[in-house]
Write a protein that binds this DNA or RNA. Structure first.
Lengths: 243, 243
DNA sequence: CGCGCTTTTGAGATAACTCAATACAGGTGG
DNA sequence: CCACCTGTATTGAGTTATCTCAAAAGCGCG
Protein backbone atom coordinates (compact mmCIF):
# COMPACT_ATOMS: atom_id res chain seq x y z
CA UNK A 1 0.00 0.00 0.00
CA UNK A 2 2.85 2.35 0.78
CA UNK A 3 5.78 2.38 -1.57
CA UNK A 4 9.05 2.33 0.41
CA UNK A 5 10.48 4.85 -2.02
CA UNK A 6 7.98 7.43 -0.91
CA UNK A 7 8.78 6.96 2.72
CA UNK A 8 12.47 7.49 2.02
CA UNK A 9 11.89 10.57 -0.04
CA UNK A 10 10.10 12.42 2.70
CA UNK A 11 12.37 14.54 4.83
CA UNK A 12 12.38 13.83 8.54
CA UNK A 13 12.00 17.50 9.30
CA UNK A 14 8.57 17.56 7.75
CA UNK A 15 5.91 18.46 10.26
CA UNK A 16 2.21 19.07 10.05
CA UNK A 17 2.43 22.68 9.04
CA UNK A 18 4.47 21.90 5.97
CA UNK A 19 1.73 19.92 4.37
CA UNK A 20 -0.54 22.94 4.46
CA UNK A 21 1.88 24.97 2.42
CA UNK A 22 1.22 23.91 -1.11
CA UNK A 23 4.69 24.87 -2.29
CA UNK A 24 6.38 22.32 -0.10
CA UNK A 25 7.04 18.80 -1.29
CA UNK A 26 5.78 19.28 -4.81
CA UNK A 27 7.20 17.12 -7.50
CA UNK A 28 6.38 16.42 -11.16
CA UNK A 29 5.24 12.93 -11.91
CA UNK A 30 5.04 11.08 -15.16
CA UNK A 31 1.49 12.04 -16.10
CA UNK A 32 -0.83 9.05 -15.75
CA UNK A 33 -3.54 10.61 -17.87
CA UNK A 34 -3.75 13.61 -20.16
CA UNK A 35 -5.91 15.75 -17.92
CA UNK A 36 -3.66 15.29 -14.97
CA UNK A 37 -0.45 16.57 -16.53
CA UNK A 38 -0.85 19.95 -14.93
CA UNK A 39 -1.70 18.70 -11.51
CA UNK A 40 1.24 18.21 -9.21
CA UNK A 41 1.80 15.14 -7.08
CA UNK A 42 2.79 15.57 -3.47
CA UNK A 43 4.45 13.21 -1.03
CA UNK A 44 2.78 13.09 2.35
CA UNK A 45 4.01 11.50 5.55
CA UNK A 46 2.10 9.80 8.36
CA UNK A 47 1.22 12.34 11.01
CA UNK A 48 0.86 15.29 8.66
CA UNK A 49 -2.41 17.09 8.11
CA UNK A 50 -3.51 18.13 4.63
CA UNK A 51 -6.12 20.54 5.94
CA UNK A 52 -8.15 21.40 9.01
CA UNK A 53 -11.80 22.07 9.67
CA UNK A 54 -12.56 25.64 8.65
CA UNK A 55 -9.58 26.02 6.31
CA UNK A 56 -10.21 27.88 3.11
CA UNK A 57 -10.42 25.04 0.55
CA UNK A 58 -7.74 25.26 -2.14
CA UNK A 59 -7.40 21.69 -3.33
CA UNK A 60 -9.14 18.41 -3.52
CA UNK A 61 -6.76 15.47 -3.24
CA UNK A 62 -6.69 12.19 -5.08
CA UNK A 63 -4.93 9.49 -3.07
CA UNK A 64 -2.30 7.66 -5.12
CA UNK A 65 -0.79 5.66 -2.27
CA UNK A 66 -0.97 5.77 1.52
CA UNK A 67 -4.02 6.26 3.71
CA UNK A 68 -5.78 9.42 4.88
CA UNK A 69 -8.22 9.93 7.73
CA UNK A 70 -11.05 12.47 7.52
CA UNK A 71 -12.61 13.57 10.78
CA UNK A 72 -14.69 16.09 12.61
CA UNK A 73 -14.39 17.20 16.19
CA UNK A 74 -16.80 18.33 18.89
CA UNK A 75 -15.71 21.03 21.34
CA UNK A 76 -15.48 18.59 24.23
CA UNK A 77 -13.05 16.37 22.35
CA UNK A 78 -15.44 13.79 21.01
CA UNK A 79 -14.35 12.76 17.56
CA UNK A 80 -16.04 11.29 14.53
CA UNK A 81 -13.91 9.74 11.82
CA UNK A 82 -15.85 10.44 8.61
CA UNK A 83 -13.83 8.22 6.33
CA UNK A 84 -10.53 6.52 5.66
CA UNK A 85 -9.27 7.34 2.19
CA UNK A 86 -7.36 4.72 0.23
CA UNK A 87 -5.71 4.87 -3.19
CA UNK A 88 -8.27 5.93 -5.78
CA UNK A 89 -10.32 7.97 -3.33
CA UNK A 90 -10.70 11.72 -3.64
CA UNK A 91 -11.03 13.81 -0.47
CA UNK A 92 -11.51 17.43 0.42
CA UNK A 93 -14.74 18.32 -1.37
CA UNK A 94 -15.39 21.82 -0.05
CA UNK A 95 -18.47 23.43 1.47
CA UNK A 96 -18.93 27.05 0.38
CA UNK A 97 -15.19 27.40 -0.04
CA UNK A 98 -14.13 25.78 3.21
CA UNK A 99 -13.14 22.37 4.41
CA UNK A 100 -15.52 20.99 7.01
CA UNK A 101 -13.29 18.18 8.15
CA UNK A 102 -9.72 17.66 9.24
CA UNK A 103 -7.61 15.45 7.00
CA UNK A 104 -4.60 13.61 8.45
CA UNK A 105 -2.20 11.18 6.87
CA UNK A 106 -2.13 7.86 8.74
CA UNK A 107 0.07 6.02 6.26
CA UNK A 108 2.64 7.88 4.18
CA UNK A 109 2.07 8.05 0.47
CA UNK A 110 1.41 10.28 -2.47
CA UNK A 111 -1.53 12.48 -3.42
CA UNK A 112 -2.46 14.54 -6.47
CA UNK A 113 -3.85 17.99 -5.77
CA UNK A 114 -6.51 19.55 -7.99
CA UNK A 115 -7.40 23.21 -7.55
CA UNK A 116 -10.92 23.49 -6.20
CA UNK A 117 -11.96 25.91 -8.93
CA UNK A 118 -11.90 23.10 -11.47
CA UNK A 119 -15.03 21.87 -9.68
CA UNK A 120 -16.94 24.94 -10.81
CA UNK A 121 -15.55 25.34 -14.33
CA UNK A 122 -16.35 22.06 -16.02
CA UNK A 123 -15.86 23.56 -19.48
CA UNK A 124 -12.14 24.12 -18.88
CA UNK A 125 -11.48 20.41 -18.52
CA UNK A 126 -14.58 18.27 -19.04
CA UNK A 127 -12.67 15.05 -18.59
CA UNK A 128 -11.33 16.06 -15.19
CA UNK A 129 -14.71 17.46 -14.27
CA UNK A 130 -16.38 14.13 -15.02
CA UNK A 131 -13.73 12.34 -13.00
CA UNK A 132 -14.37 14.58 -10.00
CA UNK A 133 -18.12 14.26 -10.34
CA UNK A 134 -17.79 10.49 -10.33
CA UNK A 135 -15.59 10.73 -7.26
CA UNK A 136 -18.13 12.94 -5.52
CA UNK A 137 -20.89 10.47 -6.33
CA UNK A 138 -18.74 7.65 -4.97
CA UNK A 139 -18.19 9.63 -1.82
CA UNK A 140 -21.94 10.17 -1.43
CA UNK A 141 -22.59 6.47 -1.91
CA UNK A 142 -19.92 5.58 0.54
CA UNK A 143 -21.23 7.95 3.18
CA UNK A 144 -24.76 6.62 2.70
CA UNK A 145 -23.54 3.07 3.16
CA UNK A 146 -21.91 4.02 6.38
CA UNK A 147 -25.04 5.77 7.63
CA UNK A 148 -26.86 2.51 7.96
CA UNK A 149 -23.92 1.03 9.83
CA UNK A 150 -23.63 3.99 12.14
CA UNK A 151 -27.30 4.45 12.87
CA UNK A 152 -28.77 0.99 12.92
CA UNK A 153 -26.18 -1.69 13.56
CA UNK A 154 -24.94 -3.26 16.80
CA UNK A 155 -21.32 -3.11 17.86
CA UNK A 156 -20.51 -6.54 16.44
CA UNK A 157 -22.39 -5.81 13.22
CA UNK A 158 -20.52 -2.53 12.83
CA UNK A 159 -17.14 -4.12 13.42
CA UNK A 160 -17.82 -7.00 11.06
CA UNK A 161 -19.05 -4.58 8.38
CA UNK A 162 -15.90 -2.55 8.82
CA UNK A 163 -13.63 -5.55 8.33
CA UNK A 164 -15.51 -6.55 5.19
CA UNK A 165 -15.21 -3.09 3.67
CA UNK A 166 -11.50 -3.06 4.41
CA UNK A 167 -11.15 -6.54 3.00
CA UNK A 168 -12.65 -5.25 -0.20
CA UNK A 169 -10.52 -2.10 -0.29
CA UNK A 170 -7.13 -3.20 0.98
CA UNK A 171 -7.34 -6.94 1.56
CA UNK A 172 -4.57 -9.12 0.18
CA UNK A 173 -4.65 -12.80 -0.54
CA UNK A 174 -1.75 -14.91 0.70
CA UNK A 175 -1.67 -18.69 0.79
CA UNK A 176 -5.35 -18.76 -0.08
CA UNK A 177 -6.26 -16.69 2.98
CA UNK A 178 -7.35 -13.07 2.87
CA UNK A 179 -5.54 -10.77 5.25
CA UNK A 180 -5.91 -7.10 6.10
CA UNK A 181 -3.16 -4.85 7.42
CA UNK A 182 -4.97 -2.22 9.46
CA UNK A 183 -3.33 1.18 9.02
CA UNK A 184 -5.36 2.66 11.90
CA UNK A 185 -5.52 1.87 15.60
CA UNK A 186 -8.51 0.78 17.70
CA UNK A 187 -9.35 4.34 18.70
CA UNK A 188 -9.63 5.36 15.03
CA UNK A 189 -11.86 2.40 14.27
CA UNK A 190 -13.99 3.22 17.32
CA UNK A 191 -14.37 6.85 16.26
CA UNK A 192 -15.31 5.70 12.78
CA UNK A 193 -17.97 3.28 14.03
CA UNK A 194 -19.33 5.39 16.87
CA UNK A 195 -18.05 3.00 19.53
CA UNK A 196 -15.34 2.94 22.22
CA UNK A 197 -11.95 1.30 21.63
CA UNK A 198 -12.81 -1.25 24.31
CA UNK A 199 -15.96 -2.30 22.48
CA UNK A 200 -14.08 -2.65 19.20
CA UNK A 201 -11.47 -4.76 20.92
CA UNK A 202 -14.14 -6.97 22.45
CA UNK A 203 -15.73 -7.44 19.02
CA UNK A 204 -12.36 -8.52 17.57
CA UNK A 205 -11.91 -10.94 20.46
CA UNK A 206 -15.40 -12.26 19.92
CA UNK A 207 -14.74 -12.92 16.22
CA UNK A 208 -11.49 -14.62 17.13
CA UNK A 209 -13.25 -16.85 19.64
CA UNK A 210 -15.72 -17.83 16.90
CA UNK A 211 -12.79 -18.53 14.54
CA UNK A 212 -14.04 -15.99 12.01
CA UNK A 213 -10.74 -14.16 12.10
CA UNK A 214 -7.20 -14.57 13.45
CA UNK A 215 -4.84 -11.83 14.60
CA UNK A 216 -1.12 -12.38 14.07
CA UNK A 217 -0.63 -9.02 15.69
CA UNK A 218 -3.12 -6.34 16.67
CA UNK A 219 -3.03 -4.77 13.21
CA UNK A 220 -2.91 -7.85 11.01
CA UNK A 221 -6.23 -9.58 10.55
CA UNK A 222 -6.65 -12.86 8.72
CA UNK A 223 -10.18 -13.64 7.59
CA UNK A 224 -10.93 -17.30 8.29
CA UNK A 225 -14.64 -17.30 7.47
CA UNK A 226 -15.86 -14.55 5.15
CA UNK A 227 -19.41 -15.90 5.06
CA UNK A 228 -19.58 -16.04 8.82
CA UNK A 229 -18.33 -12.50 9.05
CA UNK A 230 -20.88 -11.45 6.43
CA UNK A 231 -23.64 -13.01 8.50
CA UNK A 232 -22.35 -11.09 11.52
CA UNK A 233 -22.32 -7.84 9.56
CA UNK A 234 -25.94 -8.11 8.56
CA UNK A 235 -27.28 -9.58 11.76
CA UNK A 236 -28.24 -12.56 9.58
CA UNK A 237 -28.71 -14.64 12.65
CA UNK A 238 -28.74 -12.22 15.51
CA UNK A 239 -28.62 -15.12 17.93
CA UNK A 240 -25.24 -16.09 16.50
CA UNK A 241 -23.75 -12.81 17.54
CA UNK A 242 -24.08 -13.53 21.22
CA UNK A 243 -22.91 -17.10 20.89
CA UNK B 1 -44.05 24.66 2.16
CA UNK B 2 -46.68 22.85 0.11
CA UNK B 3 -48.73 24.87 -2.29
CA UNK B 4 -52.43 23.94 -1.96
CA UNK B 5 -52.71 24.16 -5.73
CA UNK B 6 -50.34 21.24 -6.14
CA UNK B 7 -52.31 19.11 -3.75
CA UNK B 8 -55.50 19.77 -5.69
CA UNK B 9 -53.96 19.06 -9.03
CA UNK B 10 -52.84 15.57 -8.15
CA UNK B 11 -55.36 12.90 -9.01
CA UNK B 12 -56.55 10.72 -6.19
CA UNK B 13 -55.97 7.61 -8.23
CA UNK B 14 -52.24 8.24 -8.23
CA UNK B 15 -50.39 5.51 -6.44
CA UNK B 16 -46.73 4.78 -5.80
CA UNK B 17 -46.14 3.09 -9.12
CA UNK B 18 -47.17 6.09 -11.14
CA UNK B 19 -44.40 8.23 -9.83
CA UNK B 20 -41.87 5.82 -11.24
CA UNK B 21 -43.25 6.23 -14.73
CA UNK B 22 -41.69 9.41 -15.98
CA UNK B 23 -44.48 10.09 -18.48
CA UNK B 24 -47.05 10.50 -15.75
CA UNK B 25 -47.73 13.85 -14.18
CA UNK B 26 -45.37 15.84 -16.30
CA UNK B 27 -46.09 19.49 -16.85
CA UNK B 28 -44.22 22.42 -18.38
CA UNK B 29 -43.33 25.17 -15.97
CA UNK B 30 -42.30 28.71 -16.61
CA UNK B 31 -38.52 28.14 -16.80
CA UNK B 32 -36.88 29.59 -13.74
CA UNK B 33 -33.43 29.65 -15.34
CA UNK B 34 -32.15 29.22 -18.86
CA UNK B 35 -30.54 25.84 -18.33
CA UNK B 36 -33.68 24.36 -16.89
CA UNK B 37 -35.99 25.03 -19.83
CA UNK B 38 -35.66 21.51 -21.11
CA UNK B 39 -36.17 19.79 -17.81
CA UNK B 40 -39.73 18.91 -16.97
CA UNK B 41 -41.33 19.60 -13.63
CA UNK B 42 -43.35 16.87 -11.99
CA UNK B 43 -46.03 16.97 -9.32
CA UNK B 44 -45.57 14.41 -6.59
CA UNK B 45 -47.95 13.40 -3.85
CA UNK B 46 -47.30 12.32 -0.27
CA UNK B 47 -46.98 8.54 -0.14
CA UNK B 48 -45.48 8.15 -3.61
CA UNK B 49 -41.99 6.82 -4.22
CA UNK B 50 -39.70 8.43 -6.78
CA UNK B 51 -37.33 5.49 -6.83
CA UNK B 52 -36.28 2.41 -4.88
CA UNK B 53 -32.99 0.95 -3.78
CA UNK B 54 -31.47 -0.89 -6.72
CA UNK B 55 -33.46 0.97 -9.39
CA UNK B 56 -31.58 1.89 -12.52
CA UNK B 57 -30.94 5.61 -12.03
CA UNK B 58 -32.59 7.74 -14.71
CA UNK B 59 -33.01 11.09 -13.04
CA UNK B 60 -31.77 13.24 -10.24
CA UNK B 61 -34.50 15.39 -8.73
CA UNK B 62 -34.44 18.96 -7.56
CA UNK B 63 -37.10 19.64 -4.96
CA UNK B 64 -39.15 22.74 -5.77
CA UNK B 65 -41.75 22.30 -3.04
CA UNK B 66 -42.78 19.51 -0.70
CA UNK B 67 -40.55 17.16 1.27
CA UNK B 68 -38.86 13.91 0.30
CA UNK B 69 -37.40 11.17 2.50
CA UNK B 70 -34.33 9.17 1.46
CA UNK B 71 -33.76 5.89 3.23
CA UNK B 72 -32.05 2.53 3.23
CA UNK B 73 -33.33 -0.73 4.58
CA UNK B 74 -31.78 -3.75 6.23
CA UNK B 75 -33.17 -7.21 5.48
CA UNK B 76 -34.69 -7.55 8.95
CA UNK B 77 -36.66 -4.35 8.56
CA UNK B 78 -34.35 -1.96 10.35
CA UNK B 79 -34.44 1.36 8.57
CA UNK B 80 -32.08 4.29 8.28
CA UNK B 81 -33.41 7.58 7.01
CA UNK B 82 -30.47 9.12 5.13
CA UNK B 83 -31.94 12.56 4.65
CA UNK B 84 -35.04 14.66 4.38
CA UNK B 85 -34.99 16.76 1.22
CA UNK B 86 -36.52 20.22 1.28
CA UNK B 87 -36.96 22.80 -1.49
CA UNK B 88 -33.57 23.54 -3.06
CA UNK B 89 -32.16 20.10 -2.32
CA UNK B 90 -31.19 17.68 -5.06
CA UNK B 91 -31.61 13.95 -4.47
CA UNK B 92 -30.94 10.75 -6.34
CA UNK B 93 -27.22 10.96 -7.06
CA UNK B 94 -26.56 7.51 -8.51
CA UNK B 95 -23.91 4.91 -7.74
CA UNK B 96 -22.64 3.14 -10.87
CA UNK B 97 -25.95 3.72 -12.56
CA UNK B 98 -28.22 2.67 -9.72
CA UNK B 99 -30.01 4.28 -6.86
CA UNK B 100 -28.81 3.03 -3.50
CA UNK B 101 -31.65 4.49 -1.47
CA UNK B 102 -35.41 4.58 -1.57
CA UNK B 103 -36.98 7.99 -2.06
CA UNK B 104 -40.51 8.65 -0.82
CA UNK B 105 -42.59 11.79 -0.83
CA UNK B 106 -43.71 12.75 2.68
CA UNK B 107 -45.24 16.09 1.75
CA UNK B 108 -46.72 16.67 -1.70
CA UNK B 109 -44.99 19.14 -3.95
CA UNK B 110 -43.13 19.59 -7.17
CA UNK B 111 -39.75 18.33 -8.38
CA UNK B 112 -37.62 18.94 -11.46
CA UNK B 113 -36.07 15.86 -13.03
CA UNK B 114 -32.65 16.01 -14.70
CA UNK B 115 -31.45 13.06 -16.73
CA UNK B 116 -28.52 11.40 -14.99
CA UNK B 117 -26.36 11.53 -18.11
CA UNK B 118 -25.96 15.28 -17.68
CA UNK B 119 -23.79 14.41 -14.69
CA UNK B 120 -21.20 12.84 -16.96
CA UNK B 121 -21.32 15.25 -19.89
CA UNK B 122 -20.50 18.61 -18.35
CA UNK B 123 -19.64 20.12 -21.75
CA UNK B 124 -23.24 19.81 -22.94
CA UNK B 125 -24.50 22.20 -20.30
CA UNK B 126 -21.72 23.62 -18.12
CA UNK B 127 -24.09 25.78 -16.11
CA UNK B 128 -26.31 22.87 -15.15
CA UNK B 129 -23.24 20.76 -14.50
CA UNK B 130 -21.90 23.34 -12.07
CA UNK B 131 -25.27 23.51 -10.35
CA UNK B 132 -25.34 19.75 -9.91
CA UNK B 133 -21.74 19.68 -8.68
CA UNK B 134 -22.59 22.29 -6.07
CA UNK B 135 -25.61 20.25 -5.05
CA UNK B 136 -23.47 17.15 -4.73
CA UNK B 137 -20.96 19.03 -2.58
CA UNK B 138 -23.80 20.30 -0.41
CA UNK B 139 -25.04 16.76 -0.04
CA UNK B 140 -21.59 15.59 1.02
CA UNK B 141 -21.34 18.39 3.57
CA UNK B 142 -24.75 17.64 4.88
CA UNK B 143 -24.03 13.93 5.27
CA UNK B 144 -20.76 14.70 7.04
CA UNK B 145 -22.56 16.97 9.49
CA UNK B 146 -24.98 14.25 10.28
CA UNK B 147 -22.21 11.71 10.81
CA UNK B 148 -21.07 13.47 13.92
CA UNK B 149 -24.63 13.57 15.19
CA UNK B 150 -25.23 9.92 14.43
CA UNK B 151 -21.97 8.57 15.76
CA UNK B 152 -21.10 10.70 18.71
CA UNK B 153 -24.11 12.44 20.20
CA UNK B 154 -26.52 11.37 22.93
CA UNK B 155 -30.24 11.05 22.31
CA UNK B 156 -31.01 14.53 23.62
CA UNK B 157 -28.12 16.06 21.69
CA UNK B 158 -29.29 14.33 18.52
CA UNK B 159 -32.85 15.50 18.92
CA UNK B 160 -31.85 19.08 19.73
CA UNK B 161 -29.49 19.14 16.72
CA UNK B 162 -32.29 17.87 14.54
CA UNK B 163 -34.67 20.62 15.64
CA UNK B 164 -32.03 23.27 15.00
CA UNK B 165 -31.33 22.00 11.49
CA UNK B 166 -35.04 22.01 10.73
CA UNK B 167 -35.40 25.46 12.22
CA UNK B 168 -32.77 26.62 9.78
CA UNK B 169 -34.31 24.85 6.80
CA UNK B 170 -38.06 25.19 7.28
CA UNK B 171 -38.53 27.31 10.39
CA UNK B 172 -40.97 30.20 10.18
CA UNK B 173 -41.16 33.23 12.41
CA UNK B 174 -44.56 34.24 13.74
CA UNK B 175 -45.16 36.80 16.48
CA UNK B 176 -41.44 36.90 17.16
CA UNK B 177 -41.32 33.16 17.88
CA UNK B 178 -39.79 30.59 15.58
CA UNK B 179 -41.95 27.58 14.84
CA UNK B 180 -41.38 24.40 12.88
CA UNK B 181 -44.06 22.32 11.22
CA UNK B 182 -42.67 18.80 11.21
CA UNK B 183 -43.61 17.02 7.99
CA UNK B 184 -42.43 13.67 9.35
CA UNK B 185 -43.56 11.52 12.25
CA UNK B 186 -41.61 10.36 15.31
CA UNK B 187 -40.64 7.07 13.67
CA UNK B 188 -39.05 8.93 10.74
CA UNK B 189 -37.14 11.19 13.11
CA UNK B 190 -36.03 8.15 15.11
CA UNK B 191 -34.83 6.36 12.00
CA UNK B 192 -32.98 9.48 10.94
CA UNK B 193 -31.24 9.87 14.30
CA UNK B 194 -30.58 6.20 15.00
CA UNK B 195 -32.99 6.11 17.95
CA UNK B 196 -36.40 4.64 18.79
CA UNK B 197 -39.60 6.69 18.50
CA UNK B 198 -40.04 6.43 22.27
CA UNK B 199 -36.65 7.99 22.89
CA UNK B 200 -37.38 10.84 20.49
CA UNK B 201 -40.68 11.44 22.21
CA UNK B 202 -38.99 11.49 25.61
CA UNK B 203 -36.47 14.02 24.34
CA UNK B 204 -39.28 16.27 23.12
CA UNK B 205 -40.99 15.96 26.49
CA UNK B 206 -37.74 16.74 28.22
CA UNK B 207 -37.24 19.92 26.18
CA UNK B 208 -40.80 20.92 26.90
CA UNK B 209 -40.30 20.41 30.62
CA UNK B 210 -37.23 22.67 30.42
CA UNK B 211 -39.29 25.26 28.50
CA UNK B 212 -36.94 25.11 25.52
CA UNK B 213 -39.81 24.28 23.20
CA UNK B 214 -43.59 24.13 23.19
CA UNK B 215 -45.79 21.78 21.20
CA UNK B 216 -49.17 23.07 20.06
CA UNK B 217 -49.68 19.68 18.52
CA UNK B 218 -47.31 16.78 18.00
CA UNK B 219 -46.05 18.19 14.71
CA UNK B 220 -45.87 21.88 15.49
CA UNK B 221 -42.86 22.89 17.52
CA UNK B 222 -42.32 26.40 18.84
CA UNK B 223 -38.78 27.22 19.83
CA UNK B 224 -38.81 29.12 23.13
CA UNK B 225 -35.07 29.16 23.81
CA UNK B 226 -32.80 28.75 20.81
CA UNK B 227 -29.62 29.22 22.83
CA UNK B 228 -30.70 26.63 25.35
CA UNK B 229 -31.47 24.21 22.55
CA UNK B 230 -28.10 24.97 20.99
CA UNK B 231 -26.40 24.19 24.29
CA UNK B 232 -28.32 20.90 24.38
CA UNK B 233 -27.27 20.07 20.83
CA UNK B 234 -23.60 20.44 21.56
CA UNK B 235 -23.60 18.97 25.03
CA UNK B 236 -22.35 22.40 26.11
CA UNK B 237 -23.21 21.59 29.64
CA UNK B 238 -23.79 17.90 29.73
CA UNK B 239 -25.08 18.19 33.27
CA UNK B 240 -27.91 20.38 31.98
CA UNK B 241 -29.20 17.58 29.80
CA UNK B 242 -30.16 15.44 32.73
CA UNK B 243 -31.69 18.30 34.69
C1' DC C 1 16.07 -4.13 30.87
C1' DG C 2 12.72 -0.94 31.82
C1' DC C 3 9.52 2.62 30.09
C1' DG C 4 5.49 4.24 27.45
C1' DC C 5 1.82 3.34 24.43
C1' DT C 6 -1.74 0.42 22.63
C1' DT C 7 -4.65 -3.40 23.27
C1' DT C 8 -7.10 -6.61 25.92
C1' DT C 9 -9.88 -8.14 29.73
C1' DG C 10 -12.83 -7.40 33.80
C1' DA C 11 -16.60 -5.45 36.71
C1' DG C 12 -19.95 -2.17 37.59
C1' DA C 13 -22.85 1.88 35.91
C1' DT C 14 -26.05 3.87 32.68
C1' DA C 15 -28.28 5.46 28.48
C1' DA C 16 -31.22 3.78 25.41
C1' DC C 17 -34.10 -0.09 24.21
C1' DT C 18 -38.20 -3.21 24.65
C1' DC C 19 -42.66 -4.15 25.82
C1' DA C 20 -46.95 -2.52 27.56
C1' DA C 21 -50.48 0.70 28.87
C1' DT C 22 -52.60 5.06 28.31
C1' DA C 23 -53.63 9.40 25.98
C1' DC C 24 -54.50 12.04 22.05
C1' DA C 25 -56.08 13.54 17.31
C1' DG C 26 -58.24 13.18 13.02
C1' DG C 27 -61.53 11.10 10.22
C1' DT C 28 -65.97 8.40 9.65
C1' DG C 29 -70.47 7.13 10.16
C1' DG C 30 -74.51 6.88 12.85
C1' DC D 1 -73.11 16.85 16.29
C1' DC D 2 -71.20 13.49 18.81
C1' DA D 3 -69.35 8.78 19.53
C1' DC D 4 -66.38 5.71 17.81
C1' DC D 5 -62.25 3.95 15.74
C1' DT D 6 -57.61 3.90 14.05
C1' DG D 7 -53.15 5.37 13.99
C1' DT D 8 -49.71 8.16 16.28
C1' DA D 9 -47.63 9.91 20.36
C1' DT D 10 -46.65 9.78 25.21
C1' DT D 11 -45.55 7.78 29.57
C1' DG D 12 -44.04 3.98 32.56
C1' DA D 13 -41.27 -0.06 34.21
C1' DG D 14 -37.88 -3.34 33.59
C1' DT D 15 -33.91 -5.14 30.55
C1' DT D 16 -29.66 -4.90 28.17
C1' DA D 17 -25.95 -3.35 25.13
C1' DT D 18 -22.54 -0.38 25.45
C1' DC D 19 -19.86 2.72 28.14
C1' DT D 20 -16.78 3.92 32.00
C1' DC D 21 -13.21 3.16 34.94
C1' DA D 22 -9.50 0.24 36.24
C1' DA D 23 -6.13 -3.25 35.94
C1' DA D 24 -3.23 -6.45 33.32
C1' DA D 25 -0.90 -7.79 29.20
C1' DG D 26 1.69 -7.07 24.97
C1' DC D 27 4.85 -4.69 22.08
C1' DG D 28 8.27 -1.53 20.39
C1' DC D 29 12.10 1.41 21.59
C1' DG D 30 15.78 3.70 23.75
Amino acid sequence: MISPVNQEAVMLASVMQEARDSTVQLRRLAPSQKQKQLHPSRLVKAGQSLFYEGDRAQFVYEVKSGVLRLMRLLEDGRRQVIAFAFPGDVVGFPQVGCHTTECDVIASGEVVAYRCDVLFHPDRDPELSTFLMKSALEEIGFLQDHFLTLGRKSATEKTASFLLVLLDRIGTRTAGLATIRLPMNRADIADFLGLTPETVSRAFSHFRALRLIALSDANTVTILDTDGLQAMAEGGSRALQRA
